[in-house]
Design a protein around this nucleic acid. Structure first.
Lengths: 343, 343
DNA sequence: CCGATTCTTTGAATCGTTTCATTGTTACGA
DNA sequence: TCGTAACAATGAAACGATTCAAAGAATCGG
């Protein structure tokens, strides 16, 4: 009902000047204990809550950071978001979250909104070509950090994950447990991530003389596409089968697993060792717990905030591109012979 | 670099008064075409962007709505959020999203933040007991709509889904395809959702004379817990087996399915028909596509925004509790005999 | 007890918009 | 040509916090 109390109301109620109330809020040391108590009591009695709009109007900038992701439903981004929020909270900022849903229009709307809100900076996993808008933002003193996308260090800071290294890790692991006839299952190689992971796998295979890598192009990156690839494998004669399969993501791997376990002709990991990518929640609770490559999402989110803080502090345009290396998670689907026996 | 342009800069550049610029922005009809053109050009040349802080300071309230969910990673909430954002955008508001992660502390922080931001209203799926804070907010003219929680209509508006009806739907469906010995698999019945779904199922079973419902209490709501329940079933002799199983959520159902398909002694749906709850993405791509109960998440999000709008418009405290009925999604895991033969 | 020093408190000015009463302009019928 | 109405444009005041120079109070050494 009643309009909320302002700092002036508090000042009147506590019989001090508005400046004193402000000092209690922002520089408690400057105020004597007696007046501080009186002011705090007044704040309590009136239920005063700072008006952030007024504060940031005066300050010229907000205490918020904009974050635009491609899909909040994707566990990868969910985790990045949470880490970013926590890191921002530590330095006293809040995160405004926008979900572009891979739509350039929504993305653009969020950039507009955040600009009107005068965010301190922007973290973005871009959809369309936003370089022009980002340049514009930077000119106006709003730095940007690209997330999950490698950027030209001359222009932006960025945090990303080395997919080539991830592919190498996965293939190397299959080779390490003694597999030699490897297969890669992955969607169109026009997707950068898929291409990089494949490239890394090829690099690992090239290091081992008698190893080979066959590429099974899957239509998409879904469980269904994986099941298709699995069915295709199961139809082959024993001599033509791979003994290690690396899938470009976990959904594909789960599909392959479904297909093989349903048909019952091939065992995982004894006949075919299987590894995915992303380490989604379902990987651990698959029929055969799935080995995978985990991306350091928390580090991504945290580092993105840190890079932004760096840009905000030094007014010199020094950018950094931080590239993280993913991590191998071994589960039963690639258990070596000894582990398989133990289980 | 340069401080961003203000409305005053635009006014100088276009050689008009500040009020005129404001009118161009907010009431274009009040301004003649000639001046409008001049002003718009100036805006363009200076790259002027409205300062939302100043605007809302003057207006006394923001154009944003706070939304606090229990877990953005949960597809249920992800979908609610997206629908709410779209509905809010239609009425010219933006949504500030907070993820409490089932943590009362985080929840409280977000309420503080949103209060400082002077959000128009709040949508919340509460963790702790926040009634006191919400009452406080309401007194200050910030209405609240509870999401996924039935509220006392005397105090709040709310949107929720009828879990009892969902349980009824699921059990009724199993009965409709001729199953009579039903089993319910679900975590501790202290969780309201679980208890309601069970209650609905019992109601359906009571309607059919020769039908029975057995309750298997699972430790949790995970795939693993489901697998445990499945293993337990598979160990029984034929006479003691249910012919229809209803799981309190899809993860449990997928676990049951994994167990049964691995052991190969019982077929789905021929021997045991299986239905879950939530209709998660994985339901459709399970080994046997899983029947499930889908919650109308888009309607939830959209309606929550609409109820909030109602409260904002009429200053009289009229609240409404909208309860949605979930929907049955039939897939192969409960296909009747004819469908099973066809497949 | 005085002057110097440190510690507290004051309150006007400021941020960038919107609002609105007022003034200026144009058009039109008599 | 004048009065009136309709239309355009003006600019000061207000929103609520922070800042900061200046005034006032307290403390201390001599």
């Amino acid at each position: 009902m009643s309009r909320s109390a302002s700092i002036k109301d508090v000042a009147n109620h506590a019989r001090v000047a508005v400046g004193t109330v402000s000092n209690v809020l922002n520089y408690p040391d400057r105020v004597s204990q007696r007046t501080k108590d009186r002011v705090l009591q007044a704040i309590d009695e009136l239920g005063f809550v700072r008006n952030d709009a007024a504060r940031q109007l005066r300050a010229g900038h907000s205490r918020t950071i904009g974050l635009i992701v491609l899909d909040v439903g994707n566990p990868f981004f969910t985790s990045v978001v949470r880490a970013a929020e926590d890191a921002a909270a530590l330095q006293g900022s809040a995160v405004l979250l926008g979900d572009s849903g891979h739509d350039a229009g929504r993305e653009s709307n969020y950039i507009d909104l955040f600009q009107e809100q005068r965010v301190q900076g922007l973290l973005i996993s871009p959809v369309g070509d936003v370089t022009e808008r980002l340049d514009q933002l930077r000119e106006r003193g709003v730095p940007t950090v690209l997330v999950d996308r490698l950027a030209d260090e001359a222009k932006y800071s960025s945090v990303s994950v080395d997919d080539d290294a991830g592919g190498y890790l996965a293939a190397r692991h299959l080779l390490d447990i003694g597999r030699r006839r490897l297969a890669f299952v992955g969607g169109p190689t026009s997707i950068r991530q898929v291409a990089d992971r494949l490239q890394g796998a090829q690099r690992a295979v090239a290091e081992v003389p008698d190893a080979s890598l066959e590429v099974l192009d899957s239509a998409g990156q879904t469980v269904l596409a994986g099941r298709g690839a699995g069915d295709q494998l199961a139809r082959r004669s024993a001599g033509e089968l791979p003994d290690g399969v690396f899938c470009a993501n976990d959904l594909l791997a789960l599909g392959v697993m479904q297909s093989l376990t349903m048909l019952r002709t091939l065992r995982i990991p004894e006949d075919i060792a299987l590894i995915g990518y992303d380490d989604i929640d379902f990987a651990v609770s698959a029929v055969v717990p799935l080995s995978s490559i985990r991306q350091p999402t928390e580090a991504l989110g945290r580092t993105a905030i840190e890079l932004l803080a760096e840009e905000l502090e030094s007014d010199k345009p020094t950018h950094r591109a931080v590239i993280f290396t993913p991590e191998l998670v071994v589960r039963q689907s690639t258990a070596g012979p000894q582990a398989a026996n133990a289980a």
